[in-house]
Design a protein around this nucleic acid. Sequence first.
RNA 1: GAGCCGUUAGCUCAGUCGGUAGAGCAUCUGCCUUUUAAGCAGAGGGUCGCUGGUUCGAUCCCAGCACGGCUCACCA
Length: 524
Amino acid sequence: MTGEDAAWPRLPHLTLPHRSQYSAHLETPTMPDDHEQTVVRRKKLQALRARGVNPYPNDFRPDHSAGEIHARCDGLGEAELAAAAPARVAGRIVGLRDFGKAGFVHFQDRTGRLQVHARRDRLSEADFDLYRTLDVGDVAGFGGQPFRTRTGELTIEANSVRLLAKALRPLPEKWHGLHDVETRYRQRYVDLVVNPDVRRIFRMRAAVITGLRRFLTARDYVEVETPMMQPIPGGAAARPFVTHHNALDVDLYLRIAPELYLKRLVVGGLERVFELSRVFRNEGLSTRHNPEFTMLEFYQAYATDEDLMVLTEEMLSSLARDVTGQTAVEYGGHTIELAPPWPRRPMIELVAEKADVPADRLLDRDAVAAVASRRGIAVGPDASAGHLLGALFEALVEPTLVQPTFVTRFPVELSPLARRNDGDPRFVDRFELIVAGHEIANAFSELNDPDDQRGRFEEQRRARAAGDLEAQPMDEDYLRALEYGLPPTAGEGIGVDRLVMLLTGATSIREVILFPQLRPESPA
RNA sequence: GAGCCGUUAGCUCAGUCGGUAGAGCAUCUGCCUUUUAAGCAGAGGGUCGCUGGUUCGAUCCCAGCACGGCUCACCA
């Protein structure tokens, strides 16, 4: 048996039905939601087909982008332009000004916009007729010579015109554009075509993700992928989405965090790992919450939370410089300076200042409960001093922290996976980075004592039994991994969407997620 | 889940103290071979989100529903 033919018998020659057989359904030129403009465009489409013009060909290859034409020609004088090589360009038509026997077309491609001039005496009759059928929104290709118009705009004098994709629906208005937020999210493709700022934001998002990868990879971190479908959803306090695997007949959960898997990898000797991808939390939606969002988590053996503060300062300030060109960003009416160093403040001190009580009183359960109720915070019978301190922090302090601030020394009750502070076991070696009132990063020295970890899981189990649906479930395999020995390690999670919001000035997470979650359009 | 606000032409928006609705752009027709939101002349285009109620009459008032926005709750 030689070759692959035996294992992979040749398929019988495929005989596809002739194209014309597909077009039967096209003979009815209207669709249910058609309006006047779509009907007109469908008629043009039919007329082109009747003339033998394929309105959706794929044999045109541009040899320059709009940006390349500008880069090459913007500085040239008339004589030099006349000597420049002709170009083939393609893109979506975003503007048309017709003068009867000539006209101007603006198209845009991934690099920008460029103008084309079409004149009857420079085009074949067929190409000029085709130009006359073009609509704003069509995708077209042009060949021709660069020149400069009377008003100085670099333009291609077309000697050929191709329709590459007929648009049957009109684009939104050229001046006011598309504003309707619902349409922008549901039809992001239209939003991207007509709103340059939207394109800018998603390019910046891509730069953030590339920059994060580069930063960690340069520091010898290994990028890994761990299960999105997990039998035990751990690593964060959140409710998961449930799904079911038929063949195994088990329920699986979309992960709420990759944390426990990543630390298993550190046990395995991958001493520096990171994962940059989606997590899923079954929560309400808001300007700061989408049910699926992008998380960066990274873990480094032989490091502490203090090391990660330094790393985070370097990472985010250099990222801001790479993505925006500077370390200061405008957000929500504030100028936020990301150049390090950033203040490091124990949570209890911040709360003591805002609540105007001595810090040591906040260590006493009854005292902190009194402060909390005075501030209108509900005090449940099970709420510990640490829980109440956390609630006070969120209510009084977090919204007021505009400039980047590391909030340190979290209560152990809030941190079931973090290492206890050596000097005070009521606290853990953890920090959150708060910027513009939002949590951007959360990091801690990892709990690697398997017995302490088991006790923390037990505590979570009790909370769960008491009705806390977000308490973390026991994970025996994770404990087994810890029993093999997790090196002393520090780990961090960064909410990438919120980071992109910060760097782009977006006040809603939906502005930095291409397809944010919305209710289905028509409840079927 | 709660409160407030919104939904009118393809798009952006006016408007009707209840009497079958307008503008700009876009579309269509005519003119126009260097325009820049091109220009000039003319024309067409509407289930006023959906359902019900009040009323002689509802796009407008009332109720319910749908979708969206903001705030809160939930949520690190």
